[in-house]
């Protein structure tokens, strides 16, 4: 029997990896991947709690979440393509038009 804390720690680690990538990576695609990683860490939590509570609602919710992640990824990549067309780059460093 694996204690719940281990699953949660795993999810936290995955989430932190995603977080680290989100904060440091320059390529838009990498950042999107990191976001996916974080989403999946959250899904993992959902499934773990659902499983340990004996209630399947959480797992259904994780399924929905995955579907929404797919939407998010699709839109995200589409936006990156638009940006690429405008700026010939997808490096987030150069996208700072919201600056002061």
């Amino acid at each position: 029997m694996i204690p719940i804390a281990f699953y949660l720690a795993l999810a936290a680690i995955i989430f932190t990896i995603g977080l680290y990538g989100l904060m440091t990576q320059r390529s838009g695609i990498r950042v999107l991947m990191c976001v996916e990683l974080m989403l999946n860490a959250a899904n993992l939590n959902l499934v773990v709690f659902s499983s340990y509570n004996g209630d399947l609602t959480g797992q259904v919710f994780a399924l929905f979440s995955i579907a929404l992640a797919a939407c998010e990824a699709a839109i995200g990549f589409a936006i990156l393509m638009s940006i690429y067309r405008m700026k010939d780059t997808i490096s987030l460093e150069t996208i700072n038009i919201l600056r002061w």
């Binding site: 989100l22 904060m23 950042v31 996208i95 700072n96 002061w100």
Partner: peptide, 17 residues
């Protein structure tokens, strides 16, 4: 203060975290 407004998403994310 406006030096903080870099316009870079990642900086904002860092600040939030």
């Amino acid at each position: 203060l406006r030096q903080f407004q870099t316009g870079k998403v990642q900086n904002y994310a860092t600040a939030v975290i």
